[in-house]
Design a protein around this nucleic acid. Sequence first.
DNA 1: ATTCTGACGTGGG
DNA 2: CCCCACGCCAGAA
Length: 110
Amino acid sequence: MSVRKSFFDKVYSIVKLIPPGRVTTYGLIANYLGSVGSSRVVGYAMNASHNLQDVPAHRVVNRNGLLTGKHHFAGTNLMKDLLESEGVKIFENTVLDFENVVWDPSKDLD
DNA sequence: ATTCTGACGTGGG
DNA sequence: CCCCACGCCAGAA
């Protein structure tokens, strides 16, 4: 009741909470939402998030730290540029020192 | 209303 | 190690 937001809206809420200089994964978000098997739905949500301004989709990568969604951004290096601008090092479309920059919602909100 | 497809992750063979 | 199948949601044609 109360709010019964759509899965997408929940995803957006989490993504908005990602602190600058940090990144998270589709799986972690899905896991936090209680739907581990819905990791791909998180990706779908990001695809639709292009309409939203408050959703830093560039901070969401796959479990390998690979910028799978970079192709969906305007420039070829926009996603990479945005992340590096926040202090996140990227090499070959992959986040360096991924384990150190990854942001786990269930960990931070714990 | 139905069908298709799209930023993932895990497990099994 | 590689390949395949399953789970899940929303928007567009």
